[in-house]
């Protein structure tokens, strides 16, 4: 119930601030241009990739997720409303969960908008819709996980720019973990790197039309752990004043 109240506030915030629209427009512009390019190529050389948009977003979210979450706690602290939130009879985790669901709902809305590309695709070729669906489910979970990583840094610092920057660095490292894994000829080492990597649980599974329980569990796990950490950070800040 508490989370629902915070969720409503959060989603209203996303839908009334120009910044969220700017991010939304940037995402749609980027995916639109690349989709258009892929479509042109598909007429001559290769069939259009049904997982194209989710794959683009898997990289783009390294930058967009921290931008969407940077103000989340930083702003509450700057305005002083954090003090009221933390003195309301609610648990930190409920607040964190509500805020996360708000951001995730906004991301879901953006994803739905990119569905327009799939509609265009269906009208001119016969794409593998199962493949597309798998990729979309994958990027939905992947996006949720990147948002929670961004939230951790928003909770850590009062400065929005610092929060966004640290979030991007962390996500870039998680993204590169997969690339790092590819450098190793030792299969065990490569597997360890891949296990830690966001990209490793997306590009070779969801984006290839493959839905595996372990990948779903990985993203759900990241979301749960990061939300828990965020709530712990808020809790610990009480103790440090």
């Amino acid at each position: 119930m508490t989370s629902w109240i915070v969720f409503r506030r959060e989603i209203a915030q996303f839908l009334t601030t120009p910044f969220a629209y700017v991010i939304g427009a940037a995402v749609l512009l980027l995916t639109g241009i690349l989709f258009n390019r892929d479509l042109n190529i598909s007429f001559s050389t290769k069939p259009a990739d049904p997982a194209l948009v989710p794959s683009i977003l898997s990289f783009a979210m390294v930058f967009f997720a921290p931008l969407l979450t940077m103000r989340m706690f930083a702003e509450e602290r700057r305005e002083g409303t954090m003090e009221l939130l933390l003195t309301a009879p609610v648990r930190e985790l409920s607040i964190v969960l509500g805020k996360f669901l708000g951001a995730w709902a906004y991301f879901t809305l953006l994803l739905l908008f990119t569905g327009i590309y799939q509609i265009i695709l269906v009208n001119i070729t016969a794409p593998d819709l199962g493949h597309a669906l798998s990729a979309y489910i994958g990027i939905w979970l992947y996006g949720g996980a990147t948002l929670t990583v961004g939230m951790v840094f928003s909770a850590l610092t009062e400065n929005q720019i610092v929060a966004a920057f640290l979030g991007m660095v962390a996500l870039m490292l998680l993204w590169l973990a997969d690339q790092a894994g590819q450098l190793f000829s030792n299969i065990d080492v490569a597997i360890i790197f891949r296990t830690m990597s966001l990209q490793g649980h997306f590009s070779t599974s969801f984006a290839s039309g493959l839905m595996r329980a372990e990948d779903v569990a990985f993203f759900a796990g990241i979301i749960a752990v990061m939300l828990f950490i965020t709530a712990q950070i808020l809790e610990s800040q009480r103790w440090h004043g």
Binding site: Q13, E79, G80
Partner: peptide, 24 residues
């Protein structure tokens, strides 16, 4: 609790703001 500097959400209306805290 009323802190020294009144904490507000500047983008909310008066009613939305009070309603938010009453609900929470």
């Amino acid at each position: 609790y009323l802190p020294e500097r009144v904490p507000v959400y500047p983008d909310m209306t008066v009613r939305e703001y009070v309603l938010f805290w009453a609900r929470l």
